[in-house]
Amino acid sequence: MTTEKKYPLPTSEQENIEEALGVLWHQSELMENRLEVILPLLEETVNKEIYKTLISKELLKEENNKILLTEKGENLAKDITRRHRLAERLLSDVLALSSQAIDPNACKLEHIISTEVAESICTLLGHPTQCPHGSLIPKGDCCEKATETIEPIITSLDKCTPGSKGKIAYLILQNHPDLHKLLSLGLIPGTPFNLHQTFPTYVIEAGETTLALEKEIAEKIFVRQ
């Protein structure tokens, strides 16, 4: 037995870099690139040295008091953001963690998810476009392919077309009374369903139960086709 691990966990420096790039990506989404704003933010969320580290690793450059990601930096930032937001989706949709628990866990997960795992999660979740907080999830290769070739494995019911069949995968847990009602009505994970129509309301047949529901609820029901 060797004590050396075959697949080492990311070092803390690597984690810090990824953390910082995540912050920078989010700032760029907000169209913020002024040095006087970004620098204190990085120092606060990561540490004092991180700015220099990023510059030295050629992930970042400064021009006229504006901070810009290099191409390498941008790719890495996009990737880490994607992993973080996918992790959030996974934790909230599939593992049904409470909203307070999602963020700290997603922060840890993002560093250990490999690109392949990220693609699998993305496919499992049906290539989601938004994180639970509503920010955009950067697209990966798998998403580009998915739109052309394969159907997502898991989609929300509101995206299904009338006549589609499959099984209930999971329900999102935001509205408790409704969720409870759905479960007591027999819409439990694994139940085969048949989507009848989507207008004027959604009508779904699950087992011996026929249910009419609005889009708001259909959005929270995820199914495997």
Partner: peptide, 8 residues
């Protein structure tokens, strides 16, 4: 509240 009803 959103519509949710069992259809007999």
């Amino acid at each position: 509240s959103p519509f949710l009803m069992e259809i007999p």
